[in-house]
Design a protein around this nucleic acid. Structure first.
Length: 757
DNA sequence: ATCCCGACCTTTTTT
DNA sequence: AGGTCGGGAT
């Protein structure tokens, strides 16, 4: 115990050893948040305030859950498997599996990922003959998920006009379709669990009696449904230990509600609010930069990070003439960092949007520097894996129409669009699944569909007593997937992936312990409650009864595949530069960080201007970006940039005006140097204004002004000349004034002034 | 069944 | 610019 608390600072120690009441921990970037969370759990268990089974720890990502799990097993000499540490979705899945009857789901219900959900919606619209121009599937999906994230069923959604009333109808129809097929989407996992717990008192009381301590990571990212779910699980008496950072709330666009932090303080009667402000990550100048920037936000709970490290290096800022040149500069700087002994994997290049990576990747590729891009396609999202999974889904639950449609004619077996249409008509007529409707289709179509059904049934029969990985192997063989890809020229990679699916199944069996009897770990009180029969006569099973009694290995593996899409880093292993969006950098840290494309319209993104609180969220995003850096921070922006096939002339980001000058070092001169050239290598020094080599891309029009030039207008402020038309006495300029928008001004009338910098 | 062309879109993303 | 998707032609 001594060594458990041994290296904590006073605030961390206070947080870890708080009494068993709800508490809010405001944990700044790099303040040891995960450490506090895991040490809190270890301390509670070690001091016998709670048994491992009485702990519920919730995260957003599998990665965070795994991290907590592994740190805990390092701290405690107990089997962490009995503990409930997982994502919101993972935990809800577990609860729904154990109580599927009470939740009104089939035992083998399956989970739709976003792509499956969209496909299901498209199918629904087609079946109902809905004009998908007027009601775009994607919008309907946002509508449905948005409603579910608010905890609202179709009949609870308020619709004030015909258009929205139609959306509500379609939401209802979508839920019916899902129910018929035995599938649930991500939001449904949460909503269904919420409804289960709120309606079923014995069940609710059982779990409330069990989970005396609920711990939540990244609390600022919770949406309203998740918040209410926590409230339900906590009941009146349990302690919720919420850890979060309002300054790092960057997911409002997907329903996260920072307001939950304030609500939590009030509704959970929080007596203890502890701020972790000691930062162990960044040097002083970097931290000052972050603090000064974020101070411009009005809606904050208030927090200022401090560090014991010295000032360190200043934050370097660079103005490039083009996105290509920006990339070259990044490469030069990276090379020199690597030359000084930096690890490539400790250098991150961050951008606001994915489109920006292309130019950087190209430059890195040309320079022969290894790099790794985060955020690509993930293992379980690959087409061939999706196909294989669909076969497995049909073996487990043949009424999953999405799965049926995906593979009924893949590999091709002569079942064309006509046959499918006939089948869909029959299914609609009888209100049954496609699989069940096959006997109602006559003729040639009926017989080819019939042999597909026989195939699926054959696969199920052949594999019923086999271990999971053997099951997958047999499926791959019988389905014809492997032979199909063998004949395809680009098929080798796909076959390799399919073989990896077999390994994934084996790994899953070993890790989840299927076949090994995992003992249920029930606290005394929980066991008492567990004996209580439910009103409907079902016996109350605790959800951590051995998984095998709750679901088959196949069902479990399929949930795993949906809930954990796998790594998305293609080229692991090698020591490589790290490229990613600012969003995906959250939670990570690097010795050196480049924040690129710091321009008005890009960062802050132009779309954010329309949104309520959009600018503040962009600023938090910038704050997240800055606080990723440990020792070196570089920021860059460019005068021109290719975006969507067009050259854009952006002003530098307004965020530069919000940074502390004393912490910065401007590498590029704050004057118009770009057309009057200079040696790139000498940009550290004062520019030679008036030198005479004009860069080709900025040919000067003979009107006194240049494209790309920054000007100032009395009414509109600063702007960038985007285009000039006409000439002489009849010349007009398109000028991008940022906040004021694009203006077309007559150059002979408008009073423009040159702006230095 | 497959292939090719043109229309369309383009912030951020986990489960 | 570049990728995806759907429709129409082969």
């Amino acid at each position: 115990m001594q060594n458990l608390l041994h290296n904590l600072n006073p605030e961390q120690l206070a947080a870890v050893t708080l009494p068993a009441q709800s508490a809010l921990i405001l944990a700044g970037a790099g303040s040891g948040k995960t450490r506090v969370l895991t040490t809190r759990i270890a301390w509670l268990i070690q001091t016998a305030q709670v048994s491992p089974a009485g702990v519920l720890a919730v995260t957003f990502t599998n990665k965070a859950a795994k991290e907590m799990m592994s740190r805990l097993s390092a701290m405690l000499p107990i089997n962490t498997r009995g503990m409930w540490i997982g994502t919101f979705h993972g935990i809800c899945n577990r609860l729904l599996r154990a109580h599927y009857r009470d939740a009104g789901l089939p035992q083998t219900f399956q989970i739709l990922d976003s792509a499956d959900q969209l496909a299901a919606i498209k199918r629904l619209l087609k079946a109902l003959n809905v004009d998908d121009e007027k009601y775009p599937p994607r919008n309907l999906m946002y509508f449905i998920n948005g409603a579910k994230d608010q905890g609202l069923r179709a009949h609870e959604v308020e619709a004030n006009d015909d258009y929205n009333r139609r959306f509500v109808q379609l939401y209802e129809a979508y839920d019916n379709q899902c129910q018929r097929e035995g599938v649930v989407d991500f939001a449904e996992l949460l909503l269904r669990t919420y409804e289960l717990m709120s309606r079923n008192q014995p069940l609710r009381e059982h779990y409330q009696a069990r989970f005396r301590h609920i711990l939540v990571d990244e609390f600022q990212d919770t949406n309203n449904l998740q918040y209410n779910w926590l409230k339900l699980m906590a009941g009146e008496h349990n302690a919720v230990f919420a850890v979060g950072d309002d300054d790092q709330s960057i997911y409002a666009f997907r329903g996260a509600n920072v307001g939950n932090m304030v609500a939590f303080e009030r509704e959970f009667r929080v007596q203890n609010l502890i701020k972790l402000e000691q930062n162990y990550r960044s040097h002083g100048h970097i931290l000052d930069t972050a603090n000064t920037l974020i101070a411009n936000n009005s809606k904050r709970l208030g927090k200022n990070l401090r560090t014991d490290a010295g000032h360190g290096e200043p934050v370097r800022i660079y103005e490039a003439s083009s996105d290509i040149q920006e990339a070259q500069w990044i490469i030069e700087q990276s090379k020199s960092l690597i030359g000084e002994g930096a690890l490539r994997s400790e250098i991150a290049i961050l951008y606001r949007s994915n489109a920006q990576s292309r130019v950087i990747e190209h430059a890195l590729f040309t320079a022969g520097i290894p790099y790794r891009v985060y955020g690509g396609q993930r293992f379980f999202e690959r087409a061939e894996i999706k196909h294989a999974i669909a076969y497995l889904q049909l073996m487990d639950n043949p009424h999953n129409d999405s799965a049926f449609l995906r593979v009924v004619n893949f590999p091709t077996r002569g079942i064309g669009a006509r046959s499918i249409e006939q089948l869909q008509d029959a299914a609609r007529q009888y209100g049954i699944s496609l699989y069940a409707a096959v006997p109602y289709v006559a003729g040639k179509a009926g017989s080819s569909l019939g042999s597909f059904v026989k195939l699926v049934e054959g696969m199920r029969f052949e594999t019923q007593n086999l271990p999971l990985q053997e099951m997958v192997k047999v499926m791959l063989d019988m389905s014809g997937l492997i032979p199909h890809y063998q004949t395809e020229k680009e098929g080798a990679d796909r076959i390799e992936n399919l073989e990896q699916l077999v390994s994934a199944a084996m790994l899953f069996v070993n890790e989840e312990g299927f076949g090994i009897d995992t003992p249920a770990f029930l606290g005394p009180k929980a066991q008492e409650v567990a004996g209580t029969p439910l009103p409907n006569g079902d016996e109350l099973i605790d959800a951590d009864a051995p998984l095998v009694t709750v679901m088959s290995p196949l069902s479990a593996f399929l949930s795993h595949a949906s809930l954990e899409a796998g790594d998305n880093q293609a080229q692991a292993g090698q020591d490589a530069l790290q490229l990613m969006t600012v969003h995906s950098a959250k939670g990570l840290e690097f010795d050196a960080v480049f924040i690129t494309g710091l321009e008005e319209g890009l960062f802050p993104h132009e779309n954010s201007a329309q949104e309520q609180g959009g600018l503040e969220e962009e600023r938090r995003l910038m704050y997240v970006a800055i606080t990723r850096a440990k020792k070196r921070l570089y920021m860059s922006f460019s005068q021109t940039r290719m975006l969507h096939g067009q050259t854009r002339y952006n002003m530098k980001s307004r965020f530069f005006d919000e940074l502390p000058e004393a912490a910065l070092k401007w590498l590029s001169p704050k004057v118009q140097h770009q057309w009057f050239g200079n040696k790139k290598s000498a940009w550290d020094d004062a520019p030679e204004v008036g030198a005479n080599n004009i860069a080709q891309s900025f040919a000067r029009k003979d009107v006194g002004w240049r494209i790309g030039e920054t000007v100032s207008h009395q009414k509109f402020g600063e702007g960038v000349i985007v285009n000039i038309e006409g000439g002489g006495t009849n010349s007009r300029a398109h000028i991008n004034f940022g906040k004021h928008g694009m203006k077309l001004l007559d150059l002979n009338i408008a009073k423009l002034e040159r702006v230095a910098g």
